[in-house]
Design a protein around this nucleic acid. Sequence first.
DNA 1: GTCTATACGCTGATAGAC
DNA 2: GTCTATCAGCGTATAGAC
Lengths: 185, 185
Amino acid sequence: MPPQNLPPRDAIRRAAGELFVRDGYGATTVRAIAAAAGCDPALVIRHFGSKEGLFLAILPVSGSLTQILAGPLDSIGRELVRYVLEGAESPLAGVYRAMVSASDRPEIKDRLRASIHDVFVGPLAERVGGTYPELRARLAAAQFAGLINACWLVADPVLVCAESDAVVTLYGDAIQRLLTSPDPT
Amino acid sequence: MPPQNLPPRDAIRRAAGELFVRDGYGATTVRAIAAAAGCDPALVIRHFGSKEGLFLAILPVSGSLTQILAGPLDSIGRELVRYVLEGAESPLAGVYRAMVSASDRPEIKDRLRASIHDVFVGPLAERVGGTYPELRARLAAAQFAGLINACWLVADPVLVCAESDAVVTLYGDAIQRLLTSPDPT
DNA sequence: GTCTATACGCTGATAGAC
DNA sequence: GTCTATCAGCGTATAGAC
């Protein structure tokens, strides 16, 4: 995969995407990105301003998640859990790890917060009823992120080895109830 | 707080704890720790082997959480949520952020996984019934971590401004059901 | 405009003299 | 045990060649 015959700007994007996902934010160096893209390190900075700027520029907007959130409201909980269990090896898991490992940078944290809202909380809040639609959607997002954390980041053996049917039922229904249970008094 | 008259080894521990919590792992430098402890940077490495070794050496074992997990089983869900909502400004939140920001280091990830088990999953799994006690405890830990993430790391405005009673009821009962609901068929 | 060469100030870490 | 000197590598900036 070394020097592609892409324009350098795209070669940098491509190389950076692979390395950030594979090694995390801190362990990926500008020099390594430049080497993989077949160009000079200074060029990376010239094009994207900084390593952080490059990272922000190539973060993808999640696609298949949007589909689930637009699907039937009363099966969203279990679908979200399946999404996490099946995606442990996917590039998206790498993206998540990279973002978390860079979350001490304020701008990246802001981006994370904004993404959660745009992709998850906003669309979902419009579809749930009750007195606290936005809060319920945000709590569902929190619970969803908790599973992603456990499966994709911590890679907890209890969950990796668990019967996925049991996880889908237990955790999926818990998310579901957050969205569609009757209001508390 | 500058040069205390502690033995240097303890002065380093103390200074490192404050800086890691305040600035995160990546933004805290060995030289800054040494300056705050009033000693030479090389001494920090000499005593703890590496920056990562120092970080691992000073991570606290969580106390008040253990109390909650040993308390009445049928109110643990709501208690855990209160713990998160009240602790947003606590040093523990800083410790959590520091750990997450260092989670691309394999050894630190291992430590995170082990802590979750020792403090949370193990003690709790012994107390819940049903067919999947350990899985239920692990899922409750995941959901708990999801709220910590949203409140302490992302600092989401929806949650920061939310009525805490509603959060305690909705999210707390969801955790609770993960632990004490009847087994699925 | 696009790119290279070079260099600056910083990092974590080491070797060896007091 | 502690400090001095020094290392290679980092992100980044700039000057100047195509």
